[in-house]
Design a protein around this nucleic acid. Structure first.
Ligand SMILES: [Mn+2]
Ligand SMILES: [Mn+2]
Ligand SMILES: [Mn+2]
Ligand SMILES: [Mn+2]
Lengths: 219, 219
DNA sequence: TTTAATTTTTAGTTTAATCTAAATTTAGTT
DNA sequence: AACTAAATTTAGATTAAACTAAAAATTAAA
């Protein structure tokens, strides 16, 4: 089944939203995610459900189907492989790659993706710490918790970021937080959720609640 | 000026056709090149001429404008850089890359192309021997003549192919003709235009007129 | 220089994807 | 249970890009 660019983008949105929260995804949530209008979403959901890529009952929200998830995962795979390529080979920074990968993910050529994957050495994670599905859509997410819910004196390694927007990533660059950094929790402020942390056993740093909630670490 | 995928493809077709033959390109020639119908071409030419990308007077054919040529050359640049990437980095063969490059050439990101060009070491020619325009659209074609019009005992290096279709390229692979091969003309048959040649001072080979006309050599 | 053949353009449809505005359904609240 | 607010769907338009069939212009032939 060959999908249009728009269909692929909608499928990906439904997949991401149902992966995050509940199984039933609302029309409005999709419209929000896609920067489009609810009316357009209703229309597309009707079409996707005719192709059996989503389960859809009017006014009841949508759920991704098995076929739909498979298709979405292939797009996600391509997106993340391209992001790795851009960072590892073309020296882009992690805040620059998402927008370009949004275009590259729609290139149709199974052989291209196979070769790209080989060229990159079969990477398992993208520059934001998100797992890359294999040819069968299988992947393993690293165990991860928000920095904000670590305990005092806990040591952790930064493995991913929840927010992947350029502004947030640039902020992390500025304050010196990066994937792989070793972080010890020194102090947690009840009042505003801010924290004091130690990076790589060297640099003490105050971070806001917003930062702490969007940096994911593992022990 | 941002162009749609369709507009870019039409512009490229007009550019290629006017680069080859005359300055005035016919509606039918474009339709042929694009695998579409003349009616669709008329429609698109009207729109492109409103944007001043082509000069167009009804029933008189079209000529690419300066702006149009500039835009077309950027698409050609991207196409050929991606072809180099696919062959040099992803180990595709020269007959497999055109179709994929047709998709990749429409990715919009000046920085991506700048970085790709650097990553590839600023290549001057693509896998078919075609010159790669620089950021300003400038390029230099190697002096080249069809193998069919060389003289007896002439020595030449294969620098490009005129026909870049997969079947032709696969045929060249099979008989052992490749970019950079040294070719000496041993015999030319008046009757059918076939030739006998010597490749790399080692292998004698008979080739058809069709092959001889589509292999371009330089001295 | 008429006529015939060919090329090109126009007119009218179609499809995908979007939008606004209006209608409908569901959910929440007296 | 009735009403209101919010969410969702439908109806109707719009735009880009394609097509077919018909009309118009150009070119070639008689
Ligand atoms: Mn991304
Ligand atoms: Mn990512
Ligand atoms: Mn090509
Ligand atoms: Mn080429």
């Amino acid at each position: 089944m060959k999908l249009s660019l728009a269909e692929e983008n909608y499928l990906k949105a439904v997949y991401h939203l149902s992966a995050e929260g509940e199984t039933e995804v609302s029309t409005n949530a999709i419209a929000e995610e896609m920067q489009t209008k609810a009316a357009s979403v209703s229309d597309m959901m009707r079409r996707l459900s005719e192709k059996e890529l989503v389960h859809y009952k009017k006014y009841q929200g949508v759920r991704i189907s098995n076929d739909g998830a498979r298709a979405a995962l292939q797009v996600v795979r391509k997106h993340r492989l391209w992001e790795v390529f851009l960072v590892e080979k073309l020296k882009f920074s992690w805040d620059q790659v998402h927008e370009i990968a949004e275009q590259l993910e729609h290139i149709k050529s199974p052989l291209l993706i196979k070769r790209l994957d080989e060229f990159l050495g079969h990477p398992k994670y993208d520059p934001h710490g998100d797992p890359i599905p294999d040819e069968n859509g299988e992947f393993k997410e690293k165990p991860q918790i928000p920095l904000s819910s670590t305990n005092l004196n806990d040591d952790g390694i930064v493995v991913a970021v929840k927010d992947t927007s350029p502004v947030f990533l640039q902020h992390l660059d500025r304050i010196g937080i990066y994937l792989g950094a070793k972080i010890k929790t020194i102090e947690k402020t009840e009042f505003d959720g801010s924290m004091e942390i130690l990076i790589d056993q060297k640099n003490k740093l105050f971070i806001s609640k917003e930062v702490a909630q969007n940096v994911l670490v593992t022990n």
